[in-house]
Design a protein around this nucleic acid. Structure first.
Lengths: 241, 241
DNA sequence: GCAAAAGTGTTATTAATACACCCATGT
DNA sequence: ACATGGGTGTATTAATAACACTTTTGC
């Protein structure tokens, strides 16, 4: 693999993706940890090829880490402060990993490329967490789902990016019907409600919630789901085709 | 003035500003016409200096054209298609202006710089049209306010950018209290209503509208405005400090 | 006094929230 | 039978839209 500095990328433009998943009443974000000494977490990101739409670049980055395509994806903000560079991060990285990053590891040209100011387009993605098998790149030590409320301290402004992504998600959830991207193919009404409660961090009345969602007229009711529990079996739903 | 290609700009990144004004029941956009043969209109735009926030760059571009600072400004979308370049436009420009743009006018380096693919951050601005004295740059033949519904055919995707800006404006108008940026210091309730009716292109009931706006609790009522008309004088309002 | 337009109150409609009840299920 | 959780209907409240009336202004 060539270094980014040698690739045909647009310079000083990056993409950062906040990948949201949902599991057991928790809104989660997929965050890789870098395979270097020092604890460096960073939201999946990358650069844009000269002949590539920025949306396509975001898709490519997402596919790399999640293994799935056709992901729901939304551009939500451009981070463009002049002071926005990775100088501090890279210097720390090098000082903690001298054997790998000095001499041949990271030459002057590459160092300069990485530490320049970058304008970053923020995307958030909504995925069915069951369909994803998190993929490490060759720069990752691990990649894991973290509760949005318990994100590790990430490099640069990545924690702020994640926070802004959550804001944007909440705003668009009300207007568009995108929440279902976080759920599996079929689901019960209670699961939908719990998802909303998790995202907005507040409770909804059961009966009114059901009415509201069904009134959207986008769900079709399937068979009941018998769990073996000693109570009425809930219906399963899925998005109308 | 130096050519952009020689300036210390971020490469392949541009800013495009849709400047909204309001006058006589019309939502208007400030559009310069280029000082070249051929009818080329283009939304005010520019590039970002290495040590400049993108918001600051947008502000600078706005100030150049409007003469005022402290403009309400909102980033609304990033236009990042791979095919997004000005090749067609520039070639047409050169063919229609050979005397100025061939030879020393526009050298190879500059031509390459201009015709590369650009990722553009779209901003919209809301200004009090009375406070603005439209300023030509040395590349402009004229600069004028055009009704949003009667915009000239602009270069590249600038008409699509303007359309998207209007969409974004409508969306945020409901949530935030930004409409008043389009009005003068003091205004009557009817003027507010007409502004809303213009932006959303639909009528509002007078009494209900008044109630809705006053219930926002952001306006303070001033003296009446006597116009000499043979009817009840309306109150003037202004934003509470 | 009258026409024009502003201001306000009152009713009707609709949407959001709260409350109550019944139903299916496994032990 | 009964505890548990699901589904739905009704009442209450609040928000929105529709309707009606009064007031101010200059001629």
């Amino acid at each position: 693999m060539h270094h980014p500095s040698e690739q045909n990328y647009i310079q000083q433009l990056s993409i950062d993706c906040v990948i949201f998943g949902y599991h057991e009443k928790q809104l989660k974000v997929l965050v890789p940890k870098l395979d270097f000494n020092g604890d460096f977490w960073a939201v999946p990101g990358g650069f844009v090829y000269q002949n590539e739409d920025i949306d396509a670049a975001a898709n490519r980055i997402l596919q790399e880490r999640t293994g799935i395509s056709e992901i729901y994806l939304e551009q939500f903000y451009v981070f463009g402060k002049a002071a926005r560079n990775s100088l501090e991060f890279i210097d720390k990285l090098i000082s903690l990993n001298p054997e790998r990053l000095t001499g041949n590891g990271l030459n002057r040209k590459e160092y300069d490329w990485f530490t320049r100011r970058f304008v970053s387009v923020g995307y958030y993605a909504l995925v069915d967490i069951n369909k994803v098998t998190p993929q490490k790149t060759d720069l990752d030590e691990s990649i894991n789902w973290y509760n949005i409320k318990e994100l590790p301290g990430m490099i640069m402004d990545h924690n702020a990016i994640a926070a802004k992504a959550l804001d944007a998600l909440r705003l668009s959830l009300d207007e568009k019907l995108i929440a279902f991207n976080l759920l599996p193919e079929t689901f019960t009404m209670k699961e939908v409600q719990e998802l909303y409660e998790t995202i907005f961090d507040k409770p909804f009345a059961r009966n009114n919630f059901q009415k509201k969602i069904l009134d959207l007229n986008v769900l079709e009711r399937l068979d009941k789901k018998f769990t073996g529990a000693a109570n009425k079996a809930p219906f399963l739903y899925r998005i109308k085709k």
